[in-house]
Amino acid sequence: MARGGALIMMNGAPGKEVWVAINTTWNIFNFRRSLIAALREAGFRVVAYAPPDDYVGRVETICSRYIPMQLDNASTHPLRELTTLWRMVRLLRLEKPALLLTYTPKVNIYLALAARVWGIPVVANVSGLGFGFAADGGVKRIMLALYRIAFLSPKRIFFQNAEDRATFLDAELAKEAQAALLPGSGVDVSRFSPRPKVRDDGTFVFLMVSRLIWEKGVGEYVAAARLLKADFPSVSFRLLGFLDVLSPSAISRGEVEAWVLEGVIEYLGHSDDTATAYAETDCVVLPSYYREGVPRTLLEGASMGLPAITTDMPGCRQAVANGETGLLCKARDATSLAEAMRRILLMTDDERTAMGTKARARIVREFDEKIVVARYMEVVKGILGEAQR
């Protein structure tokens, strides 16, 4: 693997270069493969631009080439961040891509600023508002100022829920003509389709799939599990997701190990094969109070015919039709979460199955990733077609 800005060349389709830029190659490989395939099929050369991690090799197999991004996701040091921005400005001057497709806050902001210097068109994706909008004081003010400047130039800004779009429009961070809605990141409804239950031991399984940071509601999930264990000792509360996340609010490995030793949760580690984990599950749980776009785990679980429990928060509530495909609970409230989980446990098998069937139908109708890919292809072809005229 090349580092320090060196390029990794691959055989790619001829044509204009479209860059897909995100803060992890894991994200590119797991969530943008279908878009990349559609772009390459249309004749574009697709470049992955992201910090190197364990997924670089896999990203190399699906893109025309890969460029390592030098980005510290957790940094707020002004000089370090200005250096990162300057590197991007220099790289774009050398490479001159035809179009940038950007995701995640820092990447959206910095590449919009850098691309503006050279007149390179950008399509940004606001997949939730994250930590910055939840913070108070200086961090939030700086983020708002950066968005206000950076988002003057993108040709299109995709939002994953209407509340985030309204937030940006009300704060004058984006213009009405730029701001468009997508149904989250979509989900592959063929890969995530209902399967017969893998296990047959009668154990009821709740599953939470998430990065292990506090804002995702992991602490509330554990606390709710404790509340329910006395009445439902055989119920399994499973947790799947990355440990050692580079975040100031990361949950430590020691804390997770303590919960496992206590017997309150089963930690499954991390897996790219989440479909198998869902196939062993009866209900998906995500008690997030992070400002989500539309959480992928809720879409995946619903696509597999599972009911879900999540918080009545922007992004989360868009993924669940309360009382029909799952249940909503209060954010940061383990008691409310436990009550919703208890309601699911006390339902009959037929009632839960009916809820899951409605969840699957809604996903196929509204959240199929083909809808997302089609919207992107329409915008990409429109922008690059304009550039040729």
Rank of each mutant, 00 (worst) to 15 (best):
N73R: 15
S75Y: 13
S75R: 12
T76N: 06
T76R: 15
H77S: 03
H77R: 13
P78H: 06
P78G: 05
L79W: 12
R80P: 06
R80D: 03
E81L: 06
E81H: 07
L82H: 06
T83W: 09
T84N: 04
T84E: 08
W86V: 07
R87Q: 14
R90V: 03
L91R: 15
R93S: 15
E95W: 09
K96I: 01
K96G: 08
P97V: 15
P97D: 14
L99M: 08
L101Y: 14
L101G: 05
Y103T: 02
Y103G: 11
Y103W: 12
P105L: 09
K106N: 07
K106C: 03
N108G: 05
A112R: 02
L113A: 05
L113H: 06
A115C: 10
A115M: 07
R116F: 00
R116K: 11
V117A: 14
W118G: 12
W118Q: 08
G119N: 03
G119M: 07
I120Y: 08
I120N: 00
P121C: 09
V122P: 08
A124Q: 06
A124K: 06
N125K: 08
N125H: 11
N125I: 02
V126M: 02
S127P: 09
S127R: 05
G128L: 03
G130W: 03
G130F: 02
G132M: 04
F133W: 14
A134T: 14
A135Q: 11
D136N: 13
D136V: 09
G137N: 12
G138D: 08
V139P: 02
K140T: 10
K140Q: 10
R141H: 14
R141V: 13
I142E: 06
M143T: 15
L144E: 11
A145C: 05
L146S: 03
L146H: 01
Y147F: 10
Y147N: 05
R148A: 06
I149N: 00
I149L: 04
A150K: 05
L152I: 10
L152R: 15
S153I: 00
K155H: 13
R156V: 11
R156P: 02
F159M: 01
Q160F: 03
Q160N: 07
E163C: 13
D164R: 04
D164V: 14
D164S: 11
D164A: 10
R165E: 00
A166S: 13
L169A: 12
D170S: 12
L173P: 14
L173E: 07
L173K: 10
A174K: 05
A174R: 00
E176Y: 11
A177G: 07
A177D: 11
